[in-house]
Amino acid sequence: MNRELEKLISLHDLDVMISDLVNKDISKQEKKLGLSPDVALSQLQKMREELVATIDRRHREMYDRLAKHYGNAVVPVVNRRCSGCFTKLPTAMMSSSSGKDVVTTCPTCGRFIYQCD
């Protein structure tokens, strides 16, 4: 998988972690388990900044725009469909041997799409 795409997936998972810790119900339960979600949240936000700094500016801006618009900027391809908008992707796009080396986006919704290796 393209390294930049891997970073975008990690950024997405990091954003999910951050949103979970901001969620009052999850935070309350984590406190009941003896964890300190506020401490974790602050650290994760710093780690996010570090990760974002390593991502190409163009991709970073696209990610922010897509996340703001759809709530999720990166989605998997399932049964040759973008799982964000469910559009069937062109066969050539899926079978391209060079596809693994580039950051791919859905031609319909624009989300970053990935196929696990």
Binding site: M1, E6, S10, D13, L14, S36, V39, Q43, M47, C116
Partner: peptide, 17 residues
């Protein structure tokens, strides 16, 4: 790749706390 990215996510959470 999936395993590696999940490892990163889990370790990131652990490093945070």
């Amino acid at each position: 790749t999936t395993r590696e990215l999940l490892r990163i996510a889990l370790e990131t959470r652990e490093v945070a706390q």
